[in-house]
């Protein structure tokens, strides 16, 4: 990737801080750790759409680790990677289609959903007995958390994006 200069590092660092701050204001919390927040993902979408997908992928991965530090949920090493660094990193995919923010945000949210679903399946295959269908539970549960969150983030991102100063 291109050199990370001071400007980019500072911008990513503050974007992460903003994401964490917004993450601390929950609107709704589910018993198993998922929460709907007022657009804690918006800073990640904004930086991916403005700076491209590479910056988005890195920012997301670091954000995932910070989220883990706030609310650790660790049951399996693969689950950890899928639920934290990878899931949030995939939000950066939105930078691929930065000229159409709606499609970009949906693509990023889909990436995250996929990662959480696979992580749910990993959890089930290592803790639950044989013979259960882990996919159905994992898809239902994760979609119920991530889709509302992504929907809120989509609306907020689209409203905010044109109001930010250009650079």
């Amino acid at each position: 990737m291109s050199r990370l200069n001071a400007k980019l590092i500072a911008e990513i660092g503050l974007t992460l801080a903003l994401g964490i701050v917004l993450h601390m204001i929950p609107i709704y919390q589910l018993p198993q750790g998922g929460r709907i927040t007022p657009g804690s993902l918006v800073p990640l979408f904004v930086i991916s759409l403005r700076r491209g997908y590479k910056v988005g992928l890195i920012t997301g991965a670091v954000f995932g680790i910070l989220v883990y530090l706030i609310e650790p949920f660790f049951v399996h090493p693969i689950q950890f990677i899928l639920d934290y660094p990878l899931a949030f990193s995939l939000l950066g995919l939105s930078g691929f289609v930065s000229n159409i923010p709606i499609v970009g945000v949906l693509l990023g949210a889909f990436g995250r959903l996929l990662s959480h679903i696979i992580s749910g399946v990993v959890y089930f295959s290592s803790y639950a007995p044989q013979g259960m269908n882990p996919w159905i539970y994992s898809i239902t549960y994760n979609a119920s958390v991530i889709l509302p969150d992504a929907f809120l983030a989509l609306i907020i991102t689209i409203v905010i994006l044109p109001r930010l100063p250009n650079r």
Binding site: K7, I27, L152, V159
Partner: peptide, 30 residues
């Protein structure tokens, strides 16, 4: 939930703008 998200926009817009300003200042300081 939807209404609350909408009401957050007047808070988020200045917050984002200030954050990017801070990032510029920080980059300059670095």
């Amino acid at each position: 939930i939807l209404n609350r998200a909408k009401n957050l926009i007047p808070i988020l817009v200045p917050l984002f703008i200030n954050t990017f300003k801070r990032a510029d200042d920080l980059a300059l300081a670095m």
